[in-house]
Design a protein around this nucleic acid. Structure first.
Lengths: 128, 128
DNA sequence: CCTTGACCTTCCAGTCACTGGAACCCCTAT
DNA sequence: ATAGGGGTTCCAGTGACTGGAAGGTCAAGG
């Protein structure tokens, strides 16, 4: 399989797949003409990466997860630890964003949004 | 005022303040020795930027807000439009993160997390 | 056989908003 | 004279790609 076939199957853009090779997440074989040739295991790995990235795991977390995935003797506790830590990170981000949303939403509600120059949003950003 | 005084007052690191000058958000005067000298208006602007950034506005949004802030004849509707758009972006991020959290939390819950190799989290990432 | 167009390759640069570090200048106190 | 704690510039790196240029390869149609 060439790169665009894999791109279609995994949903990852070709550029991203090349990048993943560059940083050592996959190591596809090469045909005589220099084209990358992907085996099923490569495609499988890339699909795994796509899903993990979609869940917000960082590249380094993905690297760890991939290693555990390939390690037949891994303990599920190791995976769970990574996932739990990541989950905590996501929850922290949600809290931070929710706080932002509340503040901003208050400001927007307080603003008439007409053509007059008086603006509570700017006032809110101005004073402490 | 020198840069570290302003850093203390605004909570922004000196590096960030220099960066903001570099990209044209502030233009402090210079003393004879080459040191930046900040007037109250500069400090005020930087404090405004700090708050806007803390609310997640991008640098370009901040640039726009700053221009509106300085424009005495601005209409509050312009500001409100920027804020509302930004608010929509924040809400989209919150939704995406919440979906991630739910999926991941289900996977974590399904995982015993012991020393056995069987792991529902990896299984979840593996199959579609 | 030649061309066209869709592939593929590499490499370089840019994104965003800083951040770290090196190398050097300046000012005050001891 | 020196020590320290400011300040300055410039360069490089972050994360995870993404865009684009320049060029090689392949299959189909004329």
């Amino acid at each position: 399989m060439n790169i665009s076939d894999v791109a279609n199957r995994t949903g990852l853009p070709p550029k991203t797949i090349r990048y993943y090779e560059e940083i050592g997440l996959v190591t596809p074989a090469r045909a005589a003409n220099g084209y990358r040739t992907f085996r099923d295991t490569d495609t499988h790995k890339l699909a795994f990466l796509g899903r993990a990235r979609a869940l917000g795991f960082s590249i380094e977390e993905c690297r760890d997860l991939l290693a555990l995935w390939e390690d037949q003797s891994r303990a599920s506790g190791d995976v769970r630890a990574i996932a739990k830590e990541h989950l905590a990170g996501i929850e922290a981000k949600i809290s931070a964003l929710s706080a932002m949303r509340d503040t901003l939403s208050d400001l927007v509600d307080a603003c008439a949004g007409d053509h007059r120059p008086d603006c509570p949003i700017l006032k809110g950003l101005e004073g402490s």
